[in-house]
Write a protein that binds this DNA or RNA. Structure first.
Lengths: 330, 330
DNA sequence: TGTGAATGTGTAAACGTTAACCTACAGGCG
DNA sequence: CGCCTGTAGGTTAACGTTTACACATTCACA
């Protein structure tokens, strides 16, 4: 229950708490014998320093918080893992919170991270908490947005070139199939979906093609939405000749719909933001826009570290990662 | 930077810190006007209580730690998500640490969680840190093992009936194909793999079949290991008629190997512990042993809550979840 | 021989909360 | 009128660390 404190160690070793602290933190002068003596007692009593007290006194937690919309999405987990490794190497711990694409839980997560005094917050936001984020920045906390930006928020950010990649992909589809391809978007509340949609429209306009609203299906980045979009498109009188899906989960859902309708999965070409784990296992005509999650993670971690170690001041940094379109082999 | 403290709020509102604390924690008597006044100041200053100080004083963090071997494995994430939801409902936060199946990082994670004074630790252990876990229990901390147990450790645990399920699966394969099926195990250091292996052996013995060492491949629960096992088995002069894989990731790897070798993925039957996300998308003869991650998560969360709220004392609780073998349709 | 730097150790004041304890006033009741 | 109870709010001592400061001792050097 109640743990061993530095006082217990000090008493047992016959020294003051200051000395124990000095031994443990390797600062100040301590003689060799005393040091050995203290370390022996620490080991014998299995003493674990109280990080709460330490952080309170030092006013540093060496902890970074991260709020993710979906921990079951391998894309976000890949980003998170890279960030964690990188931060660990610099002596910071990462505290994940999953908010399930829910703005309310996201707000709560942000609150908790602030109360825990995490030194920075990395956020892939739902878009619903601009005010809370703004207050956080205003209070001088380091905030790094990843993947998604938030309207009206000027903060460090690491994002994909969504418009560019979507433009390229749409142009590719246009060239191959003309304008009759379906688009499965994410929720309008996310910057990624809005930017990707803008990219597609740009490509269509450049080619002088009108955009047919019937070919746009607004999903919400979930598997289920992808499936529903699939049934919508495949049930049309004149189904589209190809489909552009704005994330990996919806792509998976789309393929499920094809399967349910008894269509061969290579019946039409699909272009997808984000990779599909399952892709190598089935016949398909899947083109993928690789988002390089580790590049995003590395960039985010680097920004956090430089803000925390170097001066916290300075204009917001914007890092844009270039996704790569990898087209289906046939 | 340095945040607003309860003192600032107190000064601004013209009351003592005790009163502010009372308002915030809804205990003790505070008049309506003062309460409104304080809340207004809290809002205006955007005051965030310091959880470090609070926890230090109260000697409660309302935080539970969780150490996972692999955050990219959807099975563990499903367990984690259920636990988080359940704990949140009881007012606890969950702090995940990923240790990447590495005993050293696991040890480090356990240390950090103890220093943070998480009130309980939920552990899916690599098996390499029995001593650290023993010390943690000895120190009176609540520890719940999930999925895997640790040799020589008596603690609360939520596990699958691994031996039973493996026995059933092996018996099923024996009846259908005789003893010539391959087995891809996990690392010997994990209790799950040992128990599953024991189950298979039990079934073989009962049937009076000798166990052929050439049909056992020791993997390490990674995709890569499954792939290597695949090439090993499929490259044999007389390849096995079916394969039993001890986890989902290795199953995925096995299918990759089949693909690489140009075999149709339904060329032989595979029985796998844990589900495969991709399964619905390709032709296969996959039988799955469902492990019910949410049942495991619920049970683990319930044990934690009852230990933390009710008496911490009492004999270790052992909850065994029954996995369900779901055989391939053909 | 005095002086200053380097080394070694203790004392005590923070860090931001909470909660035990105290004071004070009102009103009800015998 | 005295006393108890309920309400309202202030004072202050913790919680377990770190660290500024103080005090010794040793040793080199002028």
């Amino acid at each position: 229950m109640q743990s061993i404190t530095i006082k217990d160690v000090a008493r047992e070793a016959g020294v003051s708490t200051a000395t124990v602290s000095r031994v443990l933190n390797r600062n100040g002068y301590v003689s060799h014998e005393v040091r050995q003596q203290v370390l022996a007692v620490v080991k014998r009593l299995n003493y674990q320093p109280n990080a709460l007290a330490r952080s309170l006194k030092q006013e540093r937690t060496r902890t970074v918080g991260m709020v993710l919309p979906d921990m079951t999405n391998p894309y976000f987990m890949a980003v998170a893992r890279t960030i964690q490794r990188r931060l660990l190497a610099h002596g910071y711990r990462l505290f994940y919170m999953d908010c399930d694409e829910d703005a309310e839980r996201e707000r709560e997560a942000i609150r908790v991270l602030q109360e825990m005094r995490t030194e920075a917050v990395i956020l892939a936001g739902t878009g619903g908490n601009a005010d809370a984020v703004a207050r956080m920045i205003e209070a001088g906390r380091t905030v790094v947005l990843i993947d998604r930006t938030i309207d009206g928020i000027r903060a460090d950010a690491v994002t994909d070139d969504n418009a560019g990649a979507a433009d390229e992909a749409a142009a590719y589809l246009l060239g191959k199939y003309g304008p009759r391809f379906g688009i499965i978007t994410g929720p309008r509340s996310t910057s990624t979906s809005r930017e990707r949609a803008a990219g597609v429209k740009r490509a269509l306009e450049r080619a002088g093609c009108p955009s047919d609203p019937a070919l746009w299906y607004e999903g919400d980045y979930t598997r289920r939405a992808g499936m529903e979009a699939g049934h919508y498109f495949l049930g049309m009188n004149e189904p589209p000749l190809a489909v552009f899906s704005f994330n990996n989960e919806m792509t998976y859902g789309f393929y499920l719909a094809m399967k349910q309708r008894g269509l061969p999965l290579d019946a039409l070409e699909v272009v997808s933001f984000g990779e599909l784990d399952a892709a190598p296992l089935f016949e398909n005509r899947l083109s993928v826009i690789r988002q390089h999650p580790d590049q995003i993670g590395e960039a985010a971690a680097d920004i956090v570290v430089s803000r925390l170690e170097g001066g916290a001041e300075g204009e917001p940094v914007q890092r844009v990662i270039m996704p790569a379109l990898e087209t289906a082999s046939r």
